[in-house]
Each structure stands twice: as C-alpha cells, then as structure tokens.
Design a protein around this nucleic acid. Structure first.
Length: 280
DNA sequence: CACCAGGCAAGCC
DNA sequence: GGCTTGCATGGT
C-alpha cells in the first residue's frame, strides 16, 4: 500500500474491500460518529481520528504517518485480504447476498479492555443507549483529547477505573450492568484477569478465562474474542443472529463448523444485513 | 401502558 | 446438563 501526506493528515492508496460506512455501522464498535460530509470521527487506542474515502483511497486526519504504521493500519486490519476471505466464505446464496450488502466490512482490532467493558454494557440493551453509556464512562474517566477545536475522550484505562464500585457508576444509569463493569475492571486492573495473555491462548481456553468475570457469558466473551482479540473464527450468537440462523439455516446448524476460520467475519456480514434490511 | 433492547446469573429440576 | 425468571433503564 502507498501512504502519502496530505495537508491535514495522510492518505492511503489502493485499499480494496473497505467501506468506513460498513465498518462503523455494522455494530462492532461504538465510538465513531458519522459527520455531515460522510466522514467518521472517533477515538480508538487513545487517539482521535477522522476517516473518509474516495473509492480505494482512504483519508486519515488527526494522525501521523507513524500512528498509522504503529496503530491504525492494524486497527483497520488493512494487511488482511478481505476479498480472499469473502471468496472463502461464499458457500451459500444467503451468505453471498449478505457479504455483497456489507462488502466493505473489516473486523477492527479494538483494545481488548474497551471491547470487554463495551460488550458487557451491550447486553439486553440497544445501540444508541450503549453508545451513550460508553460515552459517559469515557467522559468521566478517560483522558481528554482535542481535535479540530472539539473535546473528545479516550476510553479509560483499567488503572483509571481501578477501585470503582457500583455506587460510583450510578451516573452511568447502566442498571444492573454496573456491578458487572466493576467486577471486570477490578479483575483486569488487579491482574487477576490478564487480557494480553488471554489473547495468546487458544480460543476455547481464552473464552474460559473471560467467563470468570461476573456478567460475562458466552456472547460477551465471544465479542471480546472477535473484536478485542481478533479471533476471526469466533461466532458470537445474539438475538439477531439467532433470528437469521433460524430463518436461513437448519435447526441443528453448527455455525462454527460451517463457517470455519472466518466465522466471525461471516457473523458480521449477516448481523449487518439482518439489521439493516429488517430481515424477518 | 406494555414491550423490547447485540444476555446473564441464580434458582430450579 | 437444560429450562425459567428477574434484572435497570430508556425508547417506542
């Protein structure tokens, strides 16, 4: 890929199978907002970034060439050939339709702690409210960042949150999830749960470790594995996906076996398609 | 006013 | 093991 400087940041040429709209609207992350001009601004890995594109040319503002090489090239998973993944996954008419619809999705590499807390908050909740609660958490405990005259907040570190109790989180109005957040924070910050190490474990072993956190079940654990640890073979099952599966696949269907090493990518195509087209 | 939203733990069997 | 129920809050 070719990287060039622009007046306000950098641009990267020749990136196929990429749509910021699909990446940010498919439900994998909660901290990017679409702007009036179609660009997306958000915070990831402690930096504010503005993303826009003209076809295969990607524009990133607010970051340096070094930030791109060290963080955002990986964050957007730009070294992975999603065309190849899609051809691997073209195994039935429905999945082909879903991946044509969400052709530009990439699984971003979110910070594991951010993914853990975010998907704990997501349970039994709707996306606008999930975003609102995460945003409030960042504003209270995250590092302040400035970009184009506006203030943004990084996702708080485990250290910044260490010691919180449910009362401290009352302002979030996150309901019964507050206790879950506290348990996750304190297990991570104390070192009892080592996310870096968990990311190196085989998927099943890693999931087992995540399940030790109060408030983390199979679905949340799988989202952390897929979105926070980039384990692309993991297929999180939520109410939407279950609805899609029940409509399009046999009752005793094993999604992990069927979709194989890129099951998680298939999950995102189907999740996005299912939600955006109001399937069922 | 019900009912639901990217589930989960606890309590039953 | 599997099945049921309560759970906080805000939006329709």
């Amino acid at each position: 890929m070719e990287i060039l400087d622009t007046k306000t940041g950098i641009k990267v040429l020749g990136i196929k199978d990429t749509s910021f709209k699909h990446i940010f609207d498919c439900g994998q992350c909660f901290r990017f907002e679409e702007q009036d001009d179609g660009a997306y601004i958000g915070v990831a890995h402690g930096r504010v970034i503005r993303c826009s594109q003209e076809g295969d040319t990607l524009y990133f503002d607010g970051i340096t060439r070094q930030d791109f090489k060290e963080v955002f090239c990986d964050y957007f998973d730009l070294s992975t050939d999603y065309g190849e993944i899609k051809s691997t996954l073209s195994r039935d008419a429905f999945l082909s339709e879903a991946q044509l619809f969400g052709w530009g999705i990439r699984i971003v590499r979110q910070d594991a702690f951010e993914a853990l807390i975010s998907f704990i908050i997501s349970q039994q909740n709707n996306i606008p409210r999930i975003k609102k609660i995460i945003s409030a958490l960042c504003e209270r405990y995250g590092e302040k960042l400035q970009f184009e005259g506006k203030t943004y907040y990084a996702f708080p570190t485990p250290e910044a949150l260490f010691g919180v109790c449910t009362l401290d989180l009352d302002f979030l109005k996150s309901g019964y999830r507050a206790g879950y957040i506290c348990d996750a924070v304190n297990k991570v910050a104390s070192g009892e749960i080592d996310l870096k190490n968990i990311a190196t474990l085989p998927t099943d072993k890693a999931r087992q470790e995540l399940l030790k956190i109060h408030g983390v079940g199979n679905k949340v654990a799988d989202c952390v594995l897929l979105f926070g640890m980039h384990k692309l073979d993991v297929f999180p099952k939520d109410v939407w996906i279950n609805k899609v599966l029940s409509l399009k696949y046999p009752a005793d269907f094993n999604s992990t076996e069927y979709f194989g090493e890129y099951a998680g990518v298939a999950q995102q195509y189907m999740f996005y398609f299912g939600r955006e087209t109001k399937i069922g």
